[in-house]
Write a protein that binds this DNA or RNA. Structure first.
Lengths: 133, 133
DNA sequence: ATGCATTCAATGCACAAGCATTTAATGCGC
DNA sequence: GCGCATTAAATGCTTGTGCATTGAATGCAT
């Protein structure tokens, strides 16, 4: 076995799974209870908030948060119904849709941000360096 | 830089999410196509296969694979229907149930093992050291 | 022994996710 | 212009998951 660099891959994978599960659950609980947001909801708002004009294409977001296109479509629908984002037609390509973060969305995101960061600081092992993506 | 708390936690988290999603999807696809198993299915069989007498309690497995107790219960039901595990009553505590891997289950697990390991070797960045769990 | 809180697993229910399909808009070739 | 393959996003459908509840077995206290 070539374990020149790699520790047992299985251990790594299991560790990653455990870490992912723990952190995800904590986020889900706290963001849900305190701000009425799911993890993916927040992730989407987060991307939108940091994007240039507060808008992005659906597929773009899907890639960013690792969800399927259909899942994203429905997620957007939920956020839209909640008034946190809006769908704007893209005039250059009318098949496309721009998802834009609303005032309320930005506000909600800002409120949730500290919670999010706090949990990451708590649960994420600090030895974890930036992973390639 | 290392400001006491570590590299940007958000980057770490996003990296972890991406890595998790990619690997999980790859496993899901390959294990599904080639062996008719989901990732969690395999994970459970894997734990059972390596456990002392090929048996374990439900809650024990739930913890190991980071699933809720109810999810595990149904997962076991599916595996049982597929003939890969069996449920045995535990005589010391008749509330409890021992999940035991069957012949067929062990065989299926053995077949799937190389696929699993191969994907982990492919997709998992080898810099990823063992995470605490 | 009787009652009561606790624990283990199963089940009802609601919901989010993926796959496959559909609808609509593009753009390319002719 | 007219088809035709391609792409974007929405929708039908199925399935897996979590939460809350239920049912059963246990153990402890009285």
């Amino acid at each position: 076995m070539d374990d020149g660099v790699g520790v047992d891959v299985v251990s790594s994978w299991r560790g990653l799974l455990a870490c992912h599960a723990t952190t995800w659950c904590a986020l889900e609980r706290e963001l849900g209870d305190k701000h009425g947001l799911g993890v993916s909801d927040f992730e989407v708002l987060d991307r939108l908030a940091e994007s240039e004009h507060g808008k992005a294409r659906v597929q773009e977001l899907a890639d960013a948060v690792s969800l399927s296109q259909s899942a994203l479509s429905r997620l957007i629908s939920r956020l839209e119904k909640a008034g946190l984002v809006s769908r704007d037609a893209c005039q250059h390509d009318r098949r496309g849709v721009f998802v834009r973060i609303t005032e309320a969305g930005a506000e909600r995101h800002e409120q949730a941000l500290p919670t999010h960061r706090a949990i990451l600081n708590d649960r994420l092992p600090q030895g974890l360096s930036a992973l390639p993506h």
